[in-house]
């Protein structure tokens, strides 16, 4: 009974997020346009032919994750700030338990990230001439990356909403936390591009899944403190 209530509350929060986002489209526009603009600048200035053949595996995987991470940063930070701005945070505190709020907001951020990845990654491969041998491996790396990045982004977004609500603070707080994650994701992407074998991405996946899992677990315990204090 209790579990189903938690689930229904989480889905209700997710539903509310999706409806309000589809009305305003602020986060979708921010991450989509930021991602596409950065990609166009990178593709125009660097393109498929400006990088030496031996540097391509390193640079192309790193550039991809720089575009994805900073585009995500522009939208994911809003998930709690908008509640404080609209003065709806108190109503949400009364309407749902903290865990349901966290779960709903986390799932919303996860959906945003998946949408961003679906839009940017194929475009990036086409515009930059990025030949990926292990497509299944890349999809796994992107999926694990979305799960882990959404966890860090959601808890940091909750912290900054209770602090000053500035996007700058979001970047300052989240960059040191996601750097190890980004290093492992870049490694995994490079491995997927170089080999069709799924085994090639396993070491990076292990790191990403364990770090993402650890952050998600700790966030579940910390969120009530951040949300109520």
């Amino acid at each position: 009974m209790r579990a189903s209530t938690l689930l229904s509350e989480s889905l209700a929060v997710l539903g509310k997020e999706l409806i309000s986002e589809l009305r305003s489209r602020v986060a979708l526009n921010a991450i989509g346009l930021f991602g596409v603009t950065t990609l166009i600048v990178v593709a125009y200035q660097i393109g498929p032919y400006q990088i030496q053949e031996q540097d391509r595996p390193h640079l192309l995987s790193a550039l991809l994750w720089i575009i994805l991470f900073f585009a995500a940063t522009s939208g994911l930070s809003r998930v709690f700030v908008k509640e404080e701005d609209a003065h709806t945070a108190k109503a949400l505190r009364l309407a749902a338990r903290p865990l349901a709020v966290f779960a709903g907001k986390y799932l919303f951020n996860l959906i945003l990230l998946i949408a961003l990845f679906t839009l940017i990654v194929p475009l990036y491969c086409a515009l930059m001439g990025y030949a990926v041998r292990g497509v299944a491996g890349l999809v796994l790396v992107l999926a694990a990356g979305a799960v882990a990045l959404a966890a860090t982004a959601t808890i940091v977004a909750a912290i900054i909403a209770r602090a000053s609500g500035s996007t700058t603070l979001f970047a300052i707080l989240s960059v040191p936390l996601v750097l190890p994650l980004l290093v492992m994701l870049i490694q995994g992407t490079r491995a997927a591009a170089a080999s069709a074998e799924l085994a090639a991405v396993v070491p990076a996946l292990q790191g990403v899944v364990s770090l993402g899992g650890a952050v998600l677990t700790v966030s579940v315990y910390l969120f009530p403190v951040v949300w109520h204090d």
């Binding site: 808890i155 940091v156 912290i159 707080l173 040191p176 936390l177 190890p180 994650l181 770090l211 650890a214 952050v215 700790v218 966030s219 910390l222 403190v225 951040v226």
Partner: peptide, 11 residues
């Protein structure tokens, strides 16, 4: 600050 410190320690 306590929440952030705990989160940072995990990474």
């Amino acid at each position: 600050a306590a929440a952030y410190a705990i989160l940072a320690f995990v990474t």
